[in-house]
Design a protein around this nucleic acid. Sequence first.
DNA 1: AATGAATGAGGATTCATTCAT
DNA 2: GATGAATGAATCCTCATTCAT
Lengths: 201, 201, 201, 201
Amino acid sequence: MNDERRPTNEGPKAAARNRAALVAAAREIYAESGLDAPLSAIARRAGVGQGVLYRHFPDRAAVATAVLDENVGQIEQAAQARGTDIAQVLGVLTWHQTESAAFIALLHADGAADRCRVPAYAAALSGRVERALRKHLPEGHRLAGERDDLMIAVAMVSGAVTGPTREQRERRALAAWRLLGVEVGPVRPFEELEELEELEE
Amino acid sequence: MNDERRPTNEGPKAAARNRAALVAAAREIYAESGLDAPLSAIARRAGVGQGVLYRHFPDRAAVATAVLDENVGQIEQAAQARGTDIAQVLGVLTWHQTESAAFIALLHADGAADRCRVPAYAAALSGRVERALRKHLPEGHRLAGERDDLMIAVAMVSGAVTGPTREQRERRALAAWRLLGVEVGPVRPFEELEELEELEE
Amino acid sequence: MNDERRPTNEGPKAAARNRAALVAAAREIYAESGLDAPLSAIARRAGVGQGVLYRHFPDRAAVATAVLDENVGQIEQAAQARGTDIAQVLGVLTWHQTESAAFIALLHADGAADRCRVPAYAAALSGRVERALRKHLPEGHRLAGERDDLMIAVAMVSGAVTGPTREQRERRALAAWRLLGVEVGPVRPFEELEELEELEE
Amino acid sequence: MNDERRPTNEGPKAAARNRAALVAAAREIYAESGLDAPLSAIARRAGVGQGVLYRHFPDRAAVATAVLDENVGQIEQAAQARGTDIAQVLGVLTWHQTESAAFIALLHADGAADRCRVPAYAAALSGRVERALRKHLPEGHRLAGERDDLMIAVAMVSGAVTGPTREQRERRALAAWRLLGVEVGPVRPFEELEELEELEE
DNA sequence: AATGAATGAGGATTCATTCAT
DNA sequence: GATGAATGAATCCTCATTCAT
């Protein structure tokens, strides 16, 4: 009846796959072109039509949030893992800072307004990061004093993390923590951290 | 092409005034909307046609440079004034950080990246800030150790300076310097600093 | 951004129709205003938004090429048809010269210059015309002597084809061929030529 | 009283000099960028303000006319010189065709309408060229037959004159005249022609 | 008479968003 | 559910033209 090639409709299972592809594509595009990259570029990279993007995300902010949500989730996981201490969690945090320009923008933006166009959501996500860190903050820690010191320090490190290569960004992040007098564990994604611990057992 | 009444052409004398109006407008617009704000908004705010903007500044970068150049100039002036010490110069620097979103972006960008599209000229301006500061950096100062520590610290404070009101931004800036263990003088523009000194004489 | 009623979106089926409408509109606009006519005029004439034009054609050159390609194609068809001789093919060529200002510009530009901003692709299209003609050029033909004579003659006729009405342009074209001592068949589009031949059978 | 540097006002004598500079500049700019070049570029090349251009020429067409008027004038001079024959005058004409893109456009445009945006004036100038040539056209000359043959031939040669270098354009022009079976004298500006004749005396 | 700044319309181009299929 | 075409608003930039000085 319809001899035109209809694009394969793989049914609802594809929906989840598409969403994941969009988030992954957005992460890449953000890394390459910044948070202002055209949405069409994200859809193209994900290999889907633009309509699919709008089905999953009502607007530009929702896409960014979805990407950052993954980062924040990893930090929370790191914080919940048995036996981690604050230095290790900061290491995971720092890894995300060196890895994702968007994540940096998030932490900059903090309560900061639309300066960088990452609105409301930012506060929520930023709050989750704060809770994850504070859970591990020991009594006499350098950042345990004044109410805001913890997130101010995180924002400061975010400010320092610039440079074209990941190596350079990591070097500057570590220099920043050193200047703050805060000890940081190894800079790695949570998965690796987990794997290492499993090996130790 | 336009038979209607032309708005007043005030002749060439207006040129200097227009240029100043454009820089002032750009400063405001940048503060409100960031460095990516449309150039047309700047022209409108300045009360001139778009062509005037292009006459005075060949491209977007030239506008930004003109705005930031004023900030950097004030810091340099502060550094050259008799009797200023590093704390006072940092105070002037901090004032500009709390005042101008664009200036923050400049210092973030440091020698860094096109992440925020603040290109080449940023390096030059940032270098001038560094020289102004380093001139006053005493031997044993907290930031006099490692080669990059000085500008990393500046970038860190820039990262911390967020928030909708100047007061909040200043509070966060001071908290950041405190976390760095660096003493900062009064947070004010250079003009005020100068006036105070004159009074003392 | 637009809460108003959107004009009918006829869906993807319209794509081919729109492309054809754009080419037809471009042909008209070129005839009226030359190859430098604003692209927006073409889009308006075609009854589509400007974005559609850019979807189908990446740049101004692509539009011109699409238009001229049709002209060249007809000449090639005429050259490939059974039983045509050089005079008949020149007749078809001449018909396009009298019909389309853009086509004239193409042949003027020949391998030539950016004088009239008809760049690279012009050479390719012009080359196809030359091959189509040379295929039928008999040994002793007036234009079979010097290497470039053929296309120089074509350019010369193009130069002569001026005037506000097609009739006038045709008269001048025929005068030009006569001055060159070259015999030309009936000045008609290829379709008509074909129909005539079918009748003869 | 007026300590501003006023641009030297050299009085009315400068007016004629300015006009000449504008025409010369226009000729250069036209050669480089075509007839559509911005008027501001012409004023800049001439070293005068844009207002001066408008003082001397009411619009774009007037500038072009002034430039072409010089070309036509030289051809008329050549035609009026003692002892010149049609071949020599055609040589001068051809020199201008190979030299000036604008001049070619003029002759193309002939009675031809706004295709190339050289309007009314064109007819007048073209008419002067025709009269200059016809004055020397001997009875049995190749182009003396049909009423329009003369100017059609000129337009044809103009059509052939393409190419990036003057040498190439001259070669093609001569090929065109050869195809027309018309003899052409040496291709040079009138001044040189004159000098040569003086030497012969 | 000359200067050159200002105006503002116009053209190119890009994207967010909608929607027929 | 997916596709990807269409829309059109917004932005950038360029110039023709006017006019105070």
